[in-house]
Simulated assay, not measured.
Amino acid sequence: MRLHRLDITAFGPFGGSQSVDFDDLSAAGLFLLHGPTGAGKTSVLDAVCYALYGSVPGARQSGSQGMTLRSDHAAVGTRTEVRLELTVAGRRLEVTRQPPWERPKLRGKGTTVDKAQTWLREHDAAAGTWKDLSRSHQEIGEEITQLLGMSREQFCQVVLLPQGDFARFLRADAEARGKLLGRLFDTRRFAEVEKRLAERRRTTEAQVREGDAALLADAHRMQQAAGDAMALPELAPGDPGLAEAVLSAAA
């Protein structure tokens, strides 16, 4: 995944509109997002997460239907909006989300709530235009999750590394970390090799036990013929050293 541009309006501490050109920032390689406490560093990352998944990390997703994402400094008539342009899995996409908005009624007194809105578009490089893909929250959420290969929780644990939350990933059990890292680094081919090797091991072990059982049967017949002069080893089919022990007893 590569981020290209982020546009924020009335989101978090940003009362107006702000834009982040990630292509320009990353032109020289790595870049650092820094500033004093309250400057909006975390809110920029929250906006990326919100654009992708429709929610922000952990406890910051509070309040009714996400309406607390709206900036307290925004003008009354300005609607909260986040737009993210990114390339993922070779596709250049643009995701726009507007959380629910409680605004003054156009007629009369009081307020009304506008529903959340979501748009997904894809850039057609050949035509140089944007093509509308969906306005369904569910469809867009499923598409983004499938392309990224991560749920929101996994994205927040591994990609965003929000303040203090990375410790949860470190404390997760081995199975949970293994599943997540397997999806991140696409280790399916290694898992398939491991599966095939395990199957070959089980097949070989079964063949060894079958051969050991036949060897023990022959040893019992030899013991019956030799009487008490031959002492058989107290080993079961599949135990290491069975063949050597039988040969030693028969010598």
Rank of each mutant, 00 (worst) to 15 (best):
S136C: 08
A126R: 12
E192W: 04
R171Q: 15
A225N: 09
W130H: 04
E199P: 02
E234Q: 14
I8H: 04
R135Q: 12
M1P: 06
F190L: 13
Y50T: 05
Q65L: 11
L52T: 07
V158R: 07
A229L: 01
Q61F: 15
R196S: 11
G77Y: 09
A219K: 01
Q223F: 04
S71L: 01
A249S: 08
P13Q: 03
R183A: 15
R177F: 02
K115D: 15
K105Y: 05
F11S: 05
I8Y: 03
G108E: 00
D7N: 14
Q163Y: 12
A236N: 14
L215A: 08
R188E: 13
F22V: 09
G77D: 14
L197F: 14
L197A: 14
Q146W: 08
F169V: 00
S43A: 13
E192N: 09
I8V: 10
V44M: 08
I144D: 00
S151G: 10
D239G: 03
A245M: 00
G15H: 05
R135P: 01
E81M: 14
M150D: 07
A226M: 06
T80N: 01
T80S: 09
K115V: 12
H73V: 06
Q223E: 09
E85W: 03
G16E: 05
R189V: 10
D23L: 11
G108C: 00
F169W: 02
H137G: 07
A217T: 10
Q65T: 07
T42M: 02
K179C: 08
P240A: 10
R152D: 13
W130V: 04
E139V: 12
L216I: 02
Q224V: 11
T118S: 13
T9V: 10
M1C: 02
S55E: 12
R91F: 01
L147N: 03
T111R: 10
R79T: 13
R168H: 13
K115T: 15
L106F: 14
S134Q: 02
R200M: 15
V88P: 00
E81R: 15
G54S: 01
Q223A: 11
E234V: 12
T68K: 12
G15I: 06
Q61V: 02
E192C: 03
G178A: 05
R92C: 06
G66I: 09
A231P: 11
L247K: 11
A219L: 02
F166K: 08
T112D: 09
H4W: 07
V44W: 04
E139L: 14
G241E: 04
S151N: 01
E153D: 12
L181K: 00
A167H: 08
R200C: 10
S43T: 15
V48N: 02
